[in-house]
Amino acid sequence: MADPFQFCSSAKLVELTGRRARTVPELAEGIRALDDAVLFHHTHHFLLQHQYWLPEPTSDFAWWVAEILQERALGEDLASINTVEFRSIHELKERILAVIAAHAGDRTRTVEAPSGLEFHFLRTHSYVFPTDHRASTLAEFAGHLEKVSLQSIYHHVFEARLRLSRATNDFAWWFRDSLGEKELAVSVEHLDPYVFTLEDLRARILQLVKRRL
């Protein structure tokens, strides 16, 4: 009998670090100095906040640089960072800093954000708890996936992979390790979850699972 899949969910408490940036160099200093929970917040919170909109912006950094500082080229490069390619927050952080550094030479003057529009660094604390949904088979999994909250999907797809530094998202891990469903695991891993709304992501994964059943 396979190990059952326990659907968990998580709730977020946002901490204000008190640190803010008015320029790109200050933004880079903050990213470098602050912990992974800060970086995770600024690259993922929009997925939960704007569940029914296309996931935009791809990161708060990209939006602020482009819209507030009007550094469109840097903003575009930051927005183009494909988060799904990274296996850890640390790797993502290094890429963001590298992109910012690559533009440093182009900058002839340092633009400052207008007063009141500074970038504020925030930190997400996640509180994880089990739900009533538990699946022992793929068919049960499909039934529960239809019903679990979007917060649960967010936790298993985004938080587990990056924040908890698991090699893959929780669903693919269970398909492969507990059910021996390697092809299904690969097909779920090939999805770029950052381009779907959470509801569409649910539908897409469900479609892949039902195709297998």
Partner: peptide
């Protein structure tokens, strides 16, 4: 969550 944080501290990811 705030009550939990002030009573028990916070540490990024908390298992309730």
């Amino acid at each position: 969550l705030l009550f939990h944080a002030v009573m028990h501290g916070t540490s990024g990811v908390v298992q309730l």
